[in-house]
Amino acid sequence: HYLMTEAGQEYGRIIAEEFARPLVDTQSAILKEGQAQGLFLETDPLMFYFHLVGACDYLFFGRATLDHVFGVQEITQDLKRRYVDHIYQTLTKGLAPA
């Protein structure tokens, strides 16, 4: 996060190209295939990427909220698993046709 926001645009470009682009390309291909098979609703790859990555990021960068609001001092394996299950259910139900 520091390199992408504070260390200059060149680092941000390199990190985005080497880490984010392959992930976005893969997610976009999965969404397109799922849509073609009627398994997913039409979904904007940009919105999907930021929804999923942002949700995953914030569990770890929101430690102050975890501690001071929820009384959680440690991100345990159980908490991670519960969070993954929650994100999975939210996304899969949100992508599924009615």
Rank of each mutant, 00 (worst) to 15 (best):
Q37T: 05
T76K: 08
Q35H: 10
F48V: 08
D57T: 09
R13S: 01
G38F: 06
L91K: 07
D67Y: 10
R81T: 15
H51M: 14
L31I: 05
K32S: 03
D85F: 06
T26Y: 03
V84T: 12
V24F: 06
T90P: 06
V69C: 14
E18N: 03
V69H: 08
F60L: 08
E18V: 01
A55N: 11
F40T: 02
L52M: 11
G94I: 04
D78G: 10
F50H: 09
G34R: 03
H51W: 13
A64R: 15
E42H: 06
F61W: 08
P97L: 06
I87P: 03
R21F: 02
L23R: 08
A29D: 09
F70V: 14
A16P: 05
D57I: 03
E6D: 15
C56V: 10
L3D: 01
L91D: 08
H68Y: 04
T65H: 13
F40S: 03
T65A: 15
I15T: 02
V53L: 04
H68K: 09
A29W: 04
A20R: 10
R82L: 15
L66W: 03
Q35T: 11
D85H: 07
Q9K: 03
D67C: 15
T5L: 13
T92I: 12
P97V: 05
P97G: 04
A55W: 02
T90G: 09
A36W: 00
Q35V: 09
Y49S: 12
Y49E: 11
Y88F: 10
K32Y: 00
V53F: 01
V69D: 10
Q89S: 12
D44H: 11
G38S: 07
S28F: 01
L91F: 07
T92H: 07
F61L: 12
F40A: 03
Q73V: 04
Y83L: 08
G54F: 01
D25F: 00
L23D: 07
E33S: 06
Y58R: 14
D25Y: 00
G38I: 09
G12N: 00
L91A: 12
T65V: 15
L46K: 15
G71I: 04
G54M: 02
R13H: 02
Q37I: 06
R63L: 11
G62Q: 04
G54N: 03
F48C: 12
A55F: 05
F70H: 15
L66K: 12
Y49D: 12
F61V: 14
S28P: 01
D67N: 15
V53A: 05
Y58D: 14
Y2C: 05
H51I: 14
G8A: 00
A29N: 08
V53N: 01
H86N: 13
R82G: 14
F19P: 03
L46M: 13
Y49V: 10
A7W: 00
L31F: 01
H86G: 13
I87G: 05
P22M: 06
